[in-house]
Write a protein that binds this DNA or RNA. Structure first.
Lengths: 118, 118
DNA sequence: TAAACATTTGAACAATTGTTCAAATATGAA
DNA sequence: TTCATATTTGAACAATTGTTCAAATGTTTA
């Protein structure tokens, strides 16, 4: 950044350092952002909501979401890498499910937040 | 999408329609994705975590996060539009805070999820 | 083995994103 | 009014993203 943060008024400086020192280190910030970013796409939300009902294979997810098999696979890889889903192979199929209760909780709370407004 | 979802094995068709009918309508999916996408950036995570400690103005947020005043303002506009933060003007300053407990809860749960692994 | 089914992968592409910079707007004090 | 401070805005740009398509990889059955 190029602009120097000035903010000359009296209140500044009293709590800025205190809040700044509360922030996690940069690598944790990045992990957090990447984890939450994985929720931030309509295709992935559809996949995650479907998986919140039951374990599903790539092919089923394609039928349910209306996305191509390839698109679903690409998104599942991302969701796997970011630890939102886990999987198990059963013969030709690979069954996916939500990684843990945190993922479910975030979906539920976000639904609540959306539902309340408008 | 161009590829027809086939998935010819026996298990298919039993629950696909059932799960599909559980999914919210498209506009709600989009709202959900846009809300959660707003969490998915390191700069915005820093801003949100800072705001989880206390109400802060644009200028303070710039000092705390190390981002330019302009970059913070652009991100705050997005966070406002997506209903993650609210604000009040006090003289020359505009103080921002988290919109509600849902936003706080999502940050907390995501921190837990990140904290548990590795 | 070959064939069918299911999934994954990589390249390409358009679309979206986050930052910077400069300029504009808003507020309070002199 | 003019000045200083604080915030917002819009254009530009590089960087990232999500999808498609074609090809490759796994797995089971014949």
């Amino acid at each position: 950044m190029k602009q120097v943060p000035t903010c000359k008024s009296v209140t500044v400086g009293e709590y800025v350092d205190e809040v700044a020192s509360c922030l996690p280190p940069d690598d944790k910030i990045v992990d957090l952002a990447e984890f939450l970013q994985a929720f931030g796409d309509s295709s992935r939300i559809k996949i995650l909501l479907a998986l919140s009902k039951r374990e599903l294979c790539n092919c089923d997810l394609s039928a349910i979401t209306g996305l191509s098999v390839s698109a679903v696979s690409h998104q599942l890889r991302l969701l796997r890498d970011k630890k939102l889903v886990k999987y198990r192979r059963d013969g030709k199929k690979v069954f996916y499910s939500l990684d843990d209760e945190h993922v479910e909780a975030i979906l539920r709370i976000a639904m609540e937040h959306i539902g309340e407004r408008k």
